[in-house]
């Protein structure tokens, strides 16, 4: 469903429209939250809080911005606030996040990537996550982040460069190919 269709549905039938909105954006919100919190359960909890906040504010949403952009801002603000309040930059030992709570991927690689992502400035991290994890196009990311496509390209480039600088052997070409 497009943002416009969801928005129209929300105006006609708030609850059904809301569920469509959740269906459409739960993946993006959960993955964004996960890139800040690095814990599946916390990410799901956070995503639920984001949607609850969105539900309460649906009446005030006038469709001037994209739903994705609106949800992105709510999610990032809540994640940053959550981290600040709990004063946790890193408290979740990822090795404890077992196979039942994470999907796919090698644990050591995941931990290394998580550590590298933690040190990345938010604007770079968000662009990289939206591209490489969520698979959004540059145009979609620009709409979500509220910036130009050129800025998205630059943030992705710099974000990946920083990530690679903070990572090591696994990204050598011999292993990559």
């Amino acid at each position: 469903m497009t943002d416009r269709e969801i928005y129209e549905l929300v105006r006609r039938d708030r609850d059904t429209g809301f569920i469509m909105l959740v269906q459409e954006y739960q993946g993006m919100v959960i993955n964004l939250a996960y890139s800040y919190l690095f814990d599946r359960h916390e990410a799901e909890d956070m995503a639920q809080e984001v949607f609850m906040q969105a539900y309460g504010a649906l009446d005030r949403f006038r469709g001037e911005s994209r739903l994705s952009s609106w949800l992105y801002r709510i999610c990032v603000n809540r994640c940053i606030d959550h981290i600040r309040r709990s004063k946790r930059v890193k408290t979740v030992p990822l090795e404890l996040v077992d196979a039942a709570t994470t999907e796919g991927g090698d644990g050591a690689v995941r931990e290394a990537i998580a550590d590298a992502l933690r040190t990345l400035p938010g604007k770079f991290r968000d662009a990289v996550i939206l591209k490489d994890v969520e698979g959004k196009s540059y145009r979609q990311i620009a709409a979500i982040l509220g910036c130009s496509i050129g800025t998205v390209e630059s943030r992705i480039h710099r974000g990946r460069k920083l990530l690679r600088e903070r990572l090591s052997d696994p990204w050598e070409v011999d292993n990559a190919m």
């Binding site: 569920i19 269906q23 999907e103 796919g104 690689v109 998580a114 996550i129 990530l163 990559a176």
Partner: peptide, 30 residues
């Protein structure tokens, strides 16, 4: 190749899916 390898690892390591009960749990909490 390095860029594509990093992309692949990010996708594999950092992508999670919502649990099947996500919406039901959300509605219950609301």
């Amino acid at each position: 190749a390095r860029i594509t390898a990093l992309k692949k690892d990010l996708q594999r390591s950092m992508r999670i899916e919502a649990g099947p009960e996500f919406i039901a749990t959300l509605l219950g909490r609301m």
